[in-house]
């Protein structure tokens, strides 16, 4: 029973990590750029939820869930700003330039948040009521199930957008070969902006989902970007399903080891495992999906 409960917790955490990793890998594929600010964007989404919560009318039944669309829209806007300030001016420069510019964006977000909110941990409202459900003896937090459901819906939406729509075809074309896409009449810059908006919105959603049970502090981004990075690395650099699978894997690892030992040990082991994977199998556990761009 304990194992099942841990599994649900792990899946819920993994679902949120999957959104973070998915946003990271979408931007990576579209731009070949590593967005180091992704973790800080998750933190920003969480604090946005905290800031918006008092403005919700108290008589409405589903407080957290109502915030989700607002957070998605505002974060998408932040993604556009990020792309315009930290990516577009550096498109023709070596990749390390974007790496540094997004580190800078992350620093600004992190310290801006600590000026506005202070350093102490904050909690966003739960998506539903915040209670627990008894499923035939298995007691599960409603929030866990809600996180899984919301993340699954968002990921399914992304899959539908990319797989079934004209816009999705253009986004995929841009990710596969920007030069060729441009030659075929795709407005590549617009597609890149949309991808940044989408990736940032997913980060924000993950922030809102995480910020209820795990709290949010302005410095939370550092660990989150590492976890997104680890998920994408073990899932195969550039692979979208791999990123989701990698995120679930590390969340289960984290929850499992934390329950037996402790969270710092779990984190230490996770990073140590990452180093071993990087050294022994740099192409990831499932093979590298992104080609090297000449």
């Amino acid at each position: 029973m304990i194992t099942l409960q841990l599994l649900v917790n792990g899946l819920a955490l993994g679902a949120a990590y999957a959104l973070v990793a998915l946003g990271f890998v979408l931007v990576l594929n579209a731009t070949a750029a590593v967005n180091f600010a992704q973790g800080d964007l998750v933190m920003a989404g969480g604090l946005l939820g905290v800031a918006l919560a008092p403005h919700l009318p108290a008589y409405l039944p589903l407080p957290g869930l109502l915030l989700l669309p607002v957070v998605l829209v505002l974060m998408a806007g932040l993604g556009l700003v990020l792309a315009a300030a930290a990516y577009l001016p550096l498109r023709r420069r070596p990749p390390v330039a974007v790496f540094i510019s997004t580190i800078a964006a992350g620093i600004i977000l992190q310290n801006g948040a600590s000026v506005l909110f202070g350093p102490e941990p904050r909690a966003a409202p739960p998506l539903l009521s915040g209670g627990t459900l008894d499923l035939g003896g298995l007691v599960v937090a409603e929030q866990s199930l809600a996180i899984i459901a919301v993340a699954a819906l968002l990921i399914a939406g992304q899959q539908w957008l990319f797989g079934r729509t004209q816009l999705g075809r253009r986004l995929r074309a841009t990710a596969q070969d920007p030069e060729m896409a441009r030659a075929c009449g795709v407005r590549v810059t617009a597609m890149i902006l949309i991808t940044f908006a989408l990736g940032t919105a997913f980060a924000g959603a993950a922030g809102l989902l995480l910020a209820n049970r795990y709290f949010v502090t302005p410095t939370a981004g550092g660990d989150l970007i590492l976890k997104a990075y680890i998920a994408v690395t073990i899932g195969g650099w550039g692979s979208v399903p791999g990123a989701v699978a990698g995120a679930l894997l590390i969340a289960l690892f984290e929850v499992g080891v934390s329950s037996v030992l402790s969270y710092p040990v779990a984190l230490g082991l996770l990073y140590a495992t990452l180093l071993v994977i990087l050294v022994a199998r740099p192409q990831g556990l499932f093979g590298e999906a992104a080609r090297r761009r000449a």
């Binding site: 590593v34 550092g222 710092p264 990073y271 990452l274 180093l275 740099p282």
Partner: peptide, 24 residues
């Protein structure tokens, strides 16, 4: 081992080292 990695992996691996040292 770490220096053989490509640029972004190297940055990540060194960040991982830094986090482990901090945790310790």
């Amino acid at each position: 081992p770490v220096l053989r990695l490509e640029s972004h992996y190297f940055a990540l691996a060194t960040l991982g080292i830094a986090q482990v040292v901090h945790l310790l």
